[in-house]
Computed example of a mutant assay.
Amino acid sequence: MTAARGRPSLTERRRQENRLEIAETAAALFSDQGYEATTVEDIASGAGISLRTFYRYCAAKEDALTPVMTSSVGVLVEELARRPVDEPLSSAVQASFTSSTAARQLADREQARRLVRVMGTVPAIRMRWLAAGREMQDQLVPVLAARKGAPEDSMEVRLLACALLDAISVAMEHWAWQDEPEDVAELTRRAVDYLRIDEL
């Protein structure tokens, strides 16, 4: 049985669910006991899978978080694509960010803050995050191009995608390291407003 056009097959959806389960288990362990103290065996056991299955999805421990890093951006892009095209881009991005994070790991604020700190300070994971950034930009470009009425291969659209993702990343990293954290959605709003994207 084939999948509907544009929709993943049942097999692929199961693969995505398995990857996310591994990632969420790894995220919780890294947050609770630290990256160095967490072994691949810990992650596999926590996810209820064998080591062989873990390595089928992840080449190494540092690869386990990639789905967590990218899934929220994927939801953000989907939410942004649904927003009215005449809505100011800054408002649309903020509404999409709020919708994309509300039901995910940011609901557990302290665990999420620890996770963001791990992503920013563990070199192996930070490298994966930077590499994933290009793929996430590629997801965002068509949506921004459609809103701006510009070709997808224009330099300006790619710059806008890069700037937006960097602004969100900086806001979340700032939030993760604050002694008395502000509301992450408010920090993100300020970061996006600072770009003045509605004037572009």
Rank of each mutant, 00 (worst) to 15 (best):
residue 15 R to N: 05
residue 32 D to N: 03
residue 42 D to H: 14
residue 188 T to M: 05
residue 1 M to Q: 15
residue 186 E to L: 13
residue 182 E to R: 13
residue 67 P to T: 01
residue 45 S to C: 09
residue 166 D to E: 15
residue 19 R to F: 02
residue 142 P to T: 10
residue 112 A to H: 01
residue 111 Q to K: 00
residue 196 R to L: 12
residue 185 A to P: 02
residue 137 Q to A: 15
residue 25 T to S: 10
residue 60 A to C: 07
residue 107 A to S: 05
residue 112 A to Q: 00
residue 114 R to F: 04
residue 10 L to A: 14
residue 152 E to V: 10
residue 195 L to I: 07
residue 177 W to I: 15
residue 96 S to A: 14
residue 143 V to C: 07
residue 85 V to Y: 10
residue 111 Q to D: 00
residue 33 Q to I: 12
residue 135 E to T: 09
residue 126 R to D: 04
residue 200 L to K: 06
residue 93 V to F: 04
residue 161 A to T: 10
residue 182 E to L: 10
residue 68 V to Q: 01
residue 57 Y to D: 09
residue 87 E to C: 10
residue 156 E to I: 13
residue 87 E to Y: 05
residue 179 D to G: 04
residue 176 A to R: 11
residue 42 D to N: 14
residue 166 D to Q: 10
residue 133 G to I: 04
residue 43 I to K: 12
residue 181 P to V: 08
residue 27 A to K: 05
residue 194 Y to W: 13
residue 19 R to M: 03
residue 189 R to G: 05
residue 31 S to I: 02
residue 190 R to S: 12
residue 146 A to F: 02
residue 119 M to K: 03
residue 154 S to I: 09
residue 3 A to K: 08
residue 93 V to Q: 04
residue 148 K to N: 12
residue 163 A to P: 01
residue 72 S to N: 03
residue 41 E to C: 08
residue 118 V to L: 05
residue 156 E to Q: 12
residue 128 R to D: 04
residue 138 D to M: 07
residue 82 R to V: 06
residue 131 A to C: 00
residue 82 R to Q: 13
residue 173 E to L: 15
residue 89 L to H: 05
residue 170 V to Q: 14
residue 190 R to D: 11
residue 8 P to Y: 01
residue 32 D to I: 00
residue 88 P to Q: 11
residue 168 I to W: 11
residue 56 R to E: 13
residue 60 A to F: 07
residue 15 R to T: 04
residue 95 A to D: 14
residue 80 L to C: 12
residue 5 R to Q: 14
residue 73 V to D: 06
residue 36 E to I: 05
residue 91 S to C: 13
residue 75 V to P: 08
residue 145 A to P: 11
residue 6 G to I: 04
residue 65 L to W: 06
residue 167 A to D: 13
residue 11 T to P: 02
residue 43 I to P: 12
residue 6 G to D: 14
residue 9 S to N: 05
residue 171 A to G: 12
residue 65 L to A: 12
residue 42 D to G: 09
residue 69 M to P: 02
residue 135 E to I: 10
residue 15 R to L: 01
residue 136 M to L: 04
residue 85 V to D: 15
residue 25 T to K: 02
residue 139 Q to L: 14
residue 67 P to E: 01
residue 142 P to G: 03
residue 120 G to C: 04
residue 44 A to W: 04
residue 187 L to C: 12
residue 113 R to Q: 07
residue 31 S to T: 03
residue 20 L to Y: 01
residue 155 M to C: 06
residue 83 R to Q: 15
residue 113 R to H: 06
residue 109 R to M: 05
residue 12 E to C: 01
residue 31 S to Y: 01
residue 16 Q to K: 00
residue 16 Q to P: 00
residue 186 E to Y: 09
residue 13 R to M: 09
residue 199 E to G: 07
residue 10 L to N: 02
residue 6 G to A: 11
